[in-house]
């Protein structure tokens, strides 16, 4: 039986007011993302990558078209009612890490689990496990301002993964990191994708990240222009 895609976009359009003019950020985008995919959205700045991620991430609404996440049409649901979808189904990794500065690395990873009301013992086990997986067991008690950029992004990855999401959305996750750190982060993410079968969608213009993706969708002026399947990575 044909498996339902995790994300399905049908003719999605999004326009932003910018001063007195309306800017078309997305024009009639249709896209299916399968379970376990490792997909890169490539394209220059302003091509609509972030807008597309925001729509898939249920933090923005399309003007027209439909978006289905895990088979559920989220288009008619107000954003504030999608908090549980974001909490249980999605994980976010941001370009600027976006950790909560008053919380330690441990607490940042713990935060989504508290939202999910995971019992204390299981929560603790999972947080420690994820901190270990991203190699930050020794930094658990440190706050974000005591961590390097690479370490912060690792905490952010642990936070995104700890809630056991089906889909992780990452917007330029390596843009604020040096190339060596970026490569390590990519190794980690790639390994996680392979091991957990969690779906990853990246917005990037980093060629090294694109080259690692299994699917690379190029965008230009709010539309999908080409799609490259790099099956070699899958093997």
């Amino acid at each position: 039986m044909h498996q339902q895609p995790l994300v399905r976009l049908l003719d999605v359009t999004r326009t932003y007011p910018l001063g007195r003019v309306n800017v078309r950020a997305l024009t009639g985008v249709s896209l299916d993302v399968g379970r376990g995919d490792f997909l890169a959205l490539a394209g220059p700045s302003g091509s609509g990558k972030t807008t597309l991620l925001n729509l898939i991430g249920c933090i923005d609404k399309p003007d027209s078209g439909r978006i289905l996440i895990d088979g559920v049409d989220v288009t008619p649901v107000p954003l504030h009612r999608l908090a549980s979808t974001r909490r249980d189904t999605l994980g976010f990794i941001f370009q600027t890490f976006n950790l909560i500065p008053v919380l330690t690395a441990y607490e940042n990873v713990e935060y989504p689990l508290l939202l999910q009301q995971v019992p204390a013992a299981a929560r603790r086990k999972r947080v420690l496990d994820w901190l270990e997986q991203v190699g930050l067991s020794d930094q658990a008690r440190q706050r974000p301002d005591q961590l390097s950029g690479g370490q912060r992004q690792r905490v952010a990855i642990a936070r995104a993964m700890a809630g056991q999401p089906k889909l992780v959305l990452a917007d330029e996750p390596t843009a604020n990191l040096d190339s060596v750190t970026a490569a390590k982060i990519l190794d980690l993410v790639e390994e996680l994708n392979a091991r957990t079968r969690c779906t990853f969608i990246f917005a990037t213009h980093d060629p090294s990240l694109m080259s690692r993706a299994r699917r690379c969708v190029r965008m230009h002026d709010g539309a999908l222009v080409t799609e490259q399947i790099l099956e070699a990575r899958a093997s």
């Binding site: 504030h80 549980s84 974001r86 909490r87 935060y111």
Partner: peptide
Amino acid sequence: TREIGTMMAIGTTR
């Protein structure tokens, strides 16, 4: 503001 945005993005309710 950005922190609030992050918290809401990862599932914190209004």
